[in-house]
Design a binder for these strands. Structure first.
Lengths: 148, 148
DNA sequence: CTTGACCCTACCATGATGTCAAGGTTCATG
DNA sequence: CATGAACCTTGACATCATGGTAGGGTCAAG
């Protein structure tokens, strides 16, 4: 199969199919005499696996690990489950962070009249001193450089 | 003030302070004879505003809009509120998407024994045909859909 | 003068994806 | 056969926010 047909069959863009090959998620397919990639039917399965995992928010590294387990018929399902549950935890933390942002925003907006007057607690809140003024500072403001 | 002091005062890295200048969020400050950036105290306020907005997940474009309204003493608070509420909605949708992913993942993991046996519904679910019209990827193996 | 902290610009990298460019191949049709 | 559409190829650039590095200038104190 040509790349265009694989793309249609899987819903993965040609661009990303080549990309996955480049980063090692897909094995390099055979080439025909004209240089065209020639995919075996198995590739479709594997691409769908990758795309589904991506849709679930797995990182490339996680997908690589899952593919390795997929290829290994002897693997223990506990390994797969550990990756999946770890990722679920990761997703939960991200969702909670977004929710906290939203909460803060709604709290700020609550005090805002939302009319034609210029007074606005949202802007006032944004201009306030930052809650965590202890972020990373680039350059060595207080760290000794021990470089040769 | 030198950039290092502004960085310390705001918790924004020097790297990002220069970046915000490059993308137009911060006005280019005066330069001393030696080429060093020389910031007025106002810059600290503005940087804090930017950093706070960024922490709330606003995009650069949204921050630019908020800054414009911040600079405008005549603006109506309704404009600010509209941006804020729109963004809150955006955050809610993102959080919901993450939660849906997590739900799917947990559903898949539920059927997984998580022991030494190779049988694993998580991998089976990932290898399934991609949801094209509507998704039914949760739970056990569904009927394989044939689509070209 | 030396040292070390500070500043400058400019480039590279991330991750997933899109787009565009410039060129080769295949095939159908006039 | 010639032309053009539709396909394939590689490579490069852009996004967004951030970190890092390289290479070099500046300043103040010892």
């Amino acid at each position: 199969m040509n790349i265009g047909q694989v793309s249609k069959a899987t819903g993965v863009s040609q661009r990303m199919i080549r990309h996955y090959e480049g980063i090692g998620l897909m094995p390099p397919p055979d080439r025909r005499d004209n240089g065209y990639r020639d995919y075996p039917p198995r590739s479709i399965e594997r691409l769908r696996f990758i795309a589904n995992a991506r849709d679930l928010g797995f990182s490339v590294d996680e997908i690589a690990a899952l593919l390795g387990l997929w290829d290994d018929r002897e693997r223990a399902s506990s390994e797969v489950k550990a990756i999946a549950l770890g990722h679920a935890e990761h997703l939960a933390r991200k969702a909670a962070a977004l929710e906290a942002m939203r909460r803060t925003l709604l709290d700020l907006a609550e005090g805002c009249s939302g009319d034609a007057r210029p007074d606005c607690p949202i802007l006032a809140g944004l201009a306030e001193t930052r809650p965590h003024p202890d972020r990373e500072l680039t350059g060595a403001s207080c760290k000794p450089k021990e470089e040769a």
